[in-house]
């Protein structure tokens, strides 16, 4: 028994949806992150440009990446919750957690 995965919840019918959604949300974030790295590699001086509230692009982009991660995480969670509710409602009660 100890060699089995803890997959009592592997019957999660929303798993496929959540996995695809995760990948689709990961891609835009990775692009924004890569943009940050690329600007620094190609033209780091651009990072000195003042963009908002007196902050330069480096600081604004850095804070932006942190805040974007949280916003996207909340959106992802909301979509997952909706899907889970929809799927559980449409399935027999024994599969509900």
């Amino acid at each position: 028994m100890l060699h089995e995965p803890s997959a009592r919840s592997s019957s999660d019918p929303a798993a496929g949806y959540k996995m695809r959604l995760g990948v689709w949300m990961f891609i835009p974030y990775a692009v924004v992150y890569a943009g940050f790295v690329l600007i620094n590699l190609v033209k780091p001086v651009v990072m000195e440009t003042t963009v908002i509230f007196g902050l330069n692009l480096a600081v604004a982009y850095g804070f932006g990446l942190i805040i974007l991660a949280l916003v996207m995480a909340l959106i992802y969670n909301q979509f997952c919750v909706w899907k889970e509710h929809a799927v559980y409602r449409s399935r027999p009660s024994k599969e509900k957690e």
Partner: peptide
């Protein structure tokens, strides 16, 4: 700081739930 936090996006979107389903 930026890199450590951005790494959580990979953890959440790609790894978190499948790892939980697979592991013990």
């Amino acid at each position: 700081s930026i890199g450590y936090l951005a790494g959580w996006v990979v953890a959440l979107f790609v790894v978190a739930e499948p790892m939980k389903r697979l592991g013990k």
